[in-house]
C-alpha cells in the first residue's frame, strides 16, 4: 500500500526527518468549535457558516461521540429533518488520529479515507484537536522553508569563509583608552557576521576578542590584537609589551583581579576576563614575562561540520 506519496527509503533525510518528527499535535487546530448531542442540526448549519468549518465534532464533556459533516447537513435539508438534534443523525462510526502520531500517519489517512478532517484524541481519549489537509500543507511549507534556508545558509557559509581565509587584521590598542575600547572586537564580529558564521560561534569569538581587548586597555602598557582567519578557524592573538602577569595561575582563576577601584566602577576588573576567554576558546595558550604577555586563542568556525 502506498502510504505517503514519496519514497521513504531514498528521499532526502531532511524531508523524512520532518514527516516523522512533526507530530499530529504540532499541526492540528486546537481552537475547537464543537456542539453537544442536543444541538439542533439547524443550529449546527449556522455555526458551520459562521465559523467557516465543514464538520463539527459532537462531544459530551471532552469525549467525542460523533461528527456532523456538511454532507449530513445537506442530507438533513434534502430529507426535511434539519430541526432534529445531532445525536439522531450524526456519523458515529469515526476514524480518529492520536496526537502523538507522526504526520506521515495523518497524510496516509487522508489518502486512505475520503474524509476531509479527522478528530484528534490524546492518550486519555479526550478530544484535543481537529486536523485537515490544509493544516498539514501549511505547517509542512513553513518547516520545509526553514530547513532549506538552513541548508542554503550552510552551503553559502562554507564558500564565504573560504573567501575570508587568509585575511589578517591587526588592531593597535592603547592603555586606558576606554573611548575606543571594543572597536577591534566589533570589527571582528562584523567580519564574521558578513561571512554568515553561526550566531553562537560569533558570540564566542566576540567574548574572546572583547575580553582580550579590554585586558590590553586595562592592564597592559598597550599592545596589539591580531585576528587571523582560515577556512575553519579564527585565531585571535593579544600581544603587549608589558608589564607582564606575575602569577598566571591566579590570573586564570575566576574572580581574581588586580584592577583599580576606578576600573571596577566602570564595570571592568571582575576577574572574569581570562577565564571567560578560555571557556569560549577551542584552544588557548598564554605566556607572560617581564617584556610582555601573549595570549593566543582559536575558535572553530564550523564545529558542526566536523561531526557530520
Amino acid at each position: 500500500m502506498q502510504e505517503i506519496p514519496i519514497n521513504t527509503y531514498t528521499s532526502p533525510n531532511v524531508i523524512l526527518e520532518l514527516i516523522y518528527r512533526l507530530k499530529v499535535k504540532d499541526v492540528m487546530t486546537t481552537d475547537l468549535v464543537t456542539a453537544t448531542k442536543e444541538t439542533k442540526l439547524r443550529q449546527i448549519q449556522y455555526i458551520m457558516r459562521e465559523k467557516q468549518v465543514t464538520g463539527l465534532p459532537i462531544v459530551v464533556g471532552k469525549r467525542l461521540i460523533g461528527i456532523v459533516s456538511m454532507d449530513d447537513i445537506i442530507q438533513a435539508l434534502d430529507k426535511g429533518y434539519i430541526e432534529e438534534t445531532a445525536q439522531e443523525h450524526m456519523t458515529r462510526n469515526l476514524i480518529v488520529l492520536e496526537d502523538d502520531m507522526p504526520i506521515s500517519f495523518a497524510i496516509s489517512y487522508f489518502d486512505r479515507f475520503s474524509y476531509h478532517r479527522f478528530p484528534v484524541l490524546n492518550r486519555h481519549k479526550e478530544l484535543v484537536g481537529m486536523i485537515t489537509s490544509r493544516d498539514i500543507t501549511s505547517t509542512l511549507l513553513v518547516e520545509i522553508n526553514r530547513e532549506i534556508e538552513e541548508l542554503e545558509k550552510r552551503t553559502c557559509t562554507s564558500s564565504l569563509s573560504q573567501e575570508m581565509s587568509g585575511e589578517i587584521h591587526t588592531y593597535s590598542i592603547m592603555k586606558n583608552d576606554f573611548e575606543n575600547a571594543g572597536y577591534a572586537s566589533t570589527e571582528i564580529k562584523k567580519r564574521l557576521k558578513s561571512a554568515q558564521i553561526a550566531p553562537h560561534i560569533i558570540r564566542r569569538a566576540a567574548i574572546a576578542s572583547y575580553e582580550l581587548e579590554m585586558n590590553l586597555v586595562v592592564h597592559s602598557d598597550g599592545g596589539e590584537l591580531i585576528a587571523e582567519y582560515s577556512p575553519q578557524t579564527l585565531q585571535i592573538t593579544a600581544k603587549d609589551s608589558g608589564p607582564g602577569i606575575p602569577d598566571i595561575e591566579a590570573a586564570m582563576t575566576a574572580g581574581w583581579s588586580t584592577a583599580s577601584e576606578w576600573i571596577r566602577s566602570l564595570g571592568f576588573g571582575a576577574g572574569m576576563g581570562l577565564p571567560n576567554v578560555k571557556s569560549v576558546a577551542d584552544d588557548f595558550t598564554i605566556e607572560s614575562g617581564r617584556n610582555g604577555t601573549t595570549v593566543v586563542c582559536t575558535i572553530e568556525l564550523h564545529p558542526n561540520h566536523e561531526e557530520e
Binding site: P199, H200, R203, I207, Y210, E211, M214, L266, G267, F268, A270, M272, G273, P275, N276, S279, V280
Partner: peptide
C-alpha cells in the same frame, strides 16, 4: 560587571544594570 555580563548573559536578552556608559 561587564565581563560577567559578557560571559553569562543569554543572547536575545535585556540587560538590567546601572552601568550607564
Amino acid at each position: 560587571l561587564l565581563s560577567d555580563v559578557m560571559g553569562n548573559a543569554p543572547s536575545d536578552s535585556v540587560l538590567i544594570t546601572i552601568q550607564a556608559h
